[in-house]
Simulated assay, not measured.
Amino acid sequence: MRAVARIIGLLFVSVTSAFAQEEPKVDCGKAVTQMDMNICADREYQTADGELNKVYKQAMTAMQATDKELGDIDRAYVGAVEALKKAQRAWIGYRDGQCELAGFEARGGSMEPMLVSGCLAELTRKRTAELKELVESAEN
């Protein structure tokens, strides 16, 4: 009997978790409530982050090509890949700290997540543009 109760309990938890993870249906063009605006701001950040990851991979490929090209001349010139990694890690620290700070405008309030997500999206789009410039300059 206990085994049946455990199985039913596990099924309940699994079904509840599946519903809890379902994406809320929010029309971001008509978002009015703070919860909806928070969801939309997070979606905006997630989209920006996806684009950043795509462009970062392109930048990494470009820096690998740069290292290969320069390494053929002299191994002392190699280091573009490591410089990109170092810059990206530093940028992530800056982004996270700056956006945490942006949230203090509404610290503890329902608007704080929107402010943080908005900051994350904005800084991520700017970083994506920087990486695109890096890729373009490496290609020329």
Results as ranks from 00 to 15, higher is better:
20 A>W: 03
113 P>D: 13
100 E>F: 11
70 L>M: 14
24 P>W: 13
122 E>R: 13
72 D>W: 08
108 G>I: 11
46 Q>R: 03
56 Y>I: 09
14 S>Y: 14
68 K>Y: 12
64 Q>R: 12
111 M>G: 07
3 A>H: 14
32 V>A: 09
138 A>K: 13
12 F>K: 03
44 E>S: 05
114 M>T: 04
69 E>I: 09
83 A>F: 04
6 R>D: 09
19 F>H: 07
5 A>E: 04
34 Q>S: 11
58 Q>W: 07
18 A>G: 05
94 Y>K: 13
79 G>Q: 04
67 D>K: 02
89 R>V: 01
17 S>I: 10
23 E>A: 10
135 V>K: 00
106 A>S: 09
64 Q>K: 12
1 M>L: 11
92 I>W: 10
108 G>S: 12
90 A>Q: 10
130 E>A: 09
41 A>W: 07
1 M>V: 08
46 Q>E: 11
100 E>L: 05
66 T>C: 08
64 Q>F: 14
52 L>Q: 01
90 A>R: 10
106 A>H: 12
15 V>N: 09
113 P>T: 06
137 S>K: 14
48 A>P: 03
41 A>N: 02
16 T>F: 09
78 V>Q: 12
29 G>Y: 04
14 S>G: 12
69 E>K: 07
110 S>G: 05
140 N>A: 12
54 K>D: 01
17 S>E: 04
36 D>T: 08
118 G>A: 05
7 I>A: 14
55 V>D: 00
16 T>S: 02
73 I>E: 03
23 E>Q: 01
80 A>G: 06
10 L>K: 02
131 L>R: 08
18 A>T: 14
80 A>S: 14
2 R>K: 12
93 G>F: 03
45 Y>W: 01
3 A>K: 15
125 R>T: 00
80 A>E: 05
22 E>Q: 04
84 L>A: 04
61 T>V: 06
19 F>G: 03
31 A>F: 02
3 A>W: 06
31 A>P: 02
33 T>I: 08
124 T>H: 08
95 R>A: 06
62 A>S: 07
84 L>R: 00
127 R>S: 00
58 Q>N: 15
84 L>G: 01
28 C>S: 12
127 R>G: 03
47 T>H: 04
89 R>K: 10
55 V>K: 04
126 K>L: 07
71 G>C: 11
96 D>G: 05
13 V>S: 02
23 E>S: 12
70 L>E: 14
58 Q>T: 07
14 S>N: 05
17 S>W: 13
127 R>D: 00
16 T>G: 03
29 G>A: 01
77 Y>V: 13
5 A>D: 08
